[in-house]
Write a protein that binds this DNA or RNA. Sequence first.
DNA 1: CACGGCTAGTACGAGGGTCTGACTAATATA
DNA 2: TATATTAGTCAGACCCTCGTACTAGCCGTG
Lengths: 171, 171
Amino acid sequence: MTQTPDITTRQPGSQASVAALLFSAYRAMESRIFGALSQAGYGDVTPAQGRVFRVIRPDGSRLTELAQAARVTKQTAGFLVDQLVRAGYVVRVPDPADARARLIKIAPKGSAVIPIGAAVVAGVEAEWTALLGKERMQMLREALQVLWEATDTPSALRRHQEAPIDEVVVA
Amino acid sequence: MTQTPDITTRQPGSQASVAALLFSAYRAMESRIFGALSQAGYGDVTPAQGRVFRVIRPDGSRLTELAQAARVTKQTAGFLVDQLVRAGYVVRVPDPADARARLIKIAPKGSAVIPIGAAVVAGVEAEWTALLGKERMQMLREALQVLWEATDTPSALRRHQEAPIDEVVVA
DNA sequence: CACGGCTAGTACGAGGGTCTGACTAATATA
DNA sequence: TATATTAGTCAGACCCTCGTACTAGCCGTG
């Protein structure tokens, strides 16, 4: 019934595409996180909001920063931050260093959510460690970290014309 | 500038969340695939369409099948198949076995796209292999495969109330 | 065989997420 | 000071996804 999980491409004889597996694992984690948040009474956060929220620095971040870190346009980041503000998870305060800018900071309600998410992540990672064994889990993490450095870094992105989203192109 | 990539949750002292890394790697692959398709003149395919297209069986699949395999509702699958039909990548033909159903089959234009995507996937996987080494790449694949079996399987999904999308719940 | 329950698929409406392009306000630079 | 750059917003469009509700066809039991 459930067949080989490929992404966009079938690989005839070979094994399932790594990309499909990455997607599947990510979605599994995401489902667990947002399921738990929903049960904890935070059913109004969405994954997209979470991807912006997660990159807010402890002392606050500017919108442009969030957009770059989350890899979306400023408009999208602004849209999501609006929702987070309306829902009470973050606040916007003036940036003392620049009158054009505002700092997005995590509000108390936002701080309350963090440990819940962290607990789910820890739990799922523990399950995965139980499945894979400690060594393989550690290797998985390291391998992904290597790929991250090679693909999700400003220079790496420039290298492939991948989504030069609001990014400086000055060589 | 680019800070630790977490997903929805920051992990204070520790390493970056595995989920964030999974997401990042997946997005990198997806960007490469759709960038290449776009350059090859297939700029009208979208990731969502691709996730349905990829699960079409060689001899054709029913809509409900596609919905389950792609983990979306029948409506969403139908919506995406409509687009694929309009763009000429697939066709709908009557299912001889059931007058209610139709089979979605890959059209010639769809077949033409498959090797392009496959080539990109192979290329990116080769790059990743070069970064990680053959052994670690193989371990990565195996580890993800184990997680896939544990999380993206009917019984696994039932186990967590994750998205019981149009799925039989009959124990 | 008739009929009630199930299955395949569609229609409609809503909401969320994302982008492009165009714009304002403030800053930095020459 | 005049110009270029940067922070952020506004408006419009499009894509994706789902819930609810419906029609058409199948299937088993009486």
